[in-house]
């Protein structure tokens, strides 16, 4: 088990955004996290990635208790994520975005760089990552904020991968993508899992979730209401009631 949460709870004032959630994610699998808007999906992954601290419950990652660790340490442990609605470093170059993603991996080079002959960080790995997520190397020098929205999404995934994480968390990566792009994302995810990565995918695109995930967890009002294979989830009457039914109708 790469990631486990037990009784994870987070409250905002009167709202219990995440309510006693138990989660278990196997290594080299893709877990889908679905649920209506406001169900607590983003809050749950904010807890897992250390941007929020849980009020109750515990999180274990690769055998260690990480419940109280700050985000930057979790990144070093191998948890990488993207954000709902994209948060690239707009004013920096595409290449710098990816290099910052590699922060935990790169040796600090302040002292060596005091020698005037020392060049910048070798961009080879970063450029290869850009290509892997489907961004042209030629865009490496552009400002991240200049890229079309879909490309910023891809850049954010490249930035997350630059740390060579063990767990990649994607928060609604396909929002606003067309079917072709969404298909490319699905094959990228598959190849990443083949390479040994574990993925948590939050997504509203039911087809993408059912196609890409080994298991699916459904949240509603902060509670886990279902947990099973995509086929089981699709059959589950509780889920259909809470979520899929309305989605199918739409």
């Amino acid at each position: 088990m790469l990631l486990e949460t037990a009784g994870l709870t987070k409250r905002f004032g009167g709202v219990t955004a995440v309510n006693a959630v138990d989660l278990a994610v196997d290594e080299r699998t893709t877990l889908g996290l679905i649920g209506p808007n406001g169900a607590g999906k983003t809050t749950l992954i904010n807890l897992i990635s250390g941007l929020l601290t849980a009020d109750e419950g515990a999180i274990r990652f690769a055998g260690a208790d990480i419940s109280r660790e700050p985000a930057h340490r979790l990144a070093a442990r191998g948890i990488a994520r993207t954000f709902q609605g994209v948060r690239v470093f707009k004013g920096l170059s595409v290449l710098d975005n990816v290099l910052i993603g590699a922060h935990t991996r790169l040796r600090p080079d302040v002292l060596p760089r005091l020698a005037p002959t020392r060049g910048r960080t070798d961009p080879a790995d970063a450029l290869a990552l850009l290509e892997r997520v489907g961004l042209a190397r030629a865009r490496a020098g552009a400002l991240a904020g200049e890229l079309p929205y879909g490309d910023q999404r891809r850049l954010e995934i490249a930035r997350a991968l630059a740390s060579r994480p063990r767990l990649l968390i994607l928060d609604e990566p396909a929002a606003g993508m067309n079917p072709t792009e969404s298909l490319a994302l699905r094959s990228l995810m598959r190849s990443l899992v083949t390479d040994g990565l574990t993925i948590i995918l939050i997504e509203h695109d039911v087809r993408l979730v059912m196609g890409a995930c080994d298991r699916v967890v459904v949240l509603n009002f902060g509670r886990k209401i279902a947990d099973g294979s995509p086929a089981e989830i699709q059959r589950d009457p509780v889920v259909r009631e809470a979520y899929l039914g309305s989605e199918d109708a739409a």
């Binding site: 340490r73 920096l92 740390s163």
Partner: peptide
């Protein structure tokens, strides 16, 4: 010289987005 180093990039990242910086492993 520091500006083009890992540290200079981390500072620039902080200026752009602190939360995203923390998620990249920047203390």
């Amino acid at each position: 010289r520091v500006q083009g180093s890992t540290v200079g990039r981390a500072w620039a990242a902080l200026r752009e987005d602190e939360l995203a910086s923390a998620s990249q492993g920047i203390d």
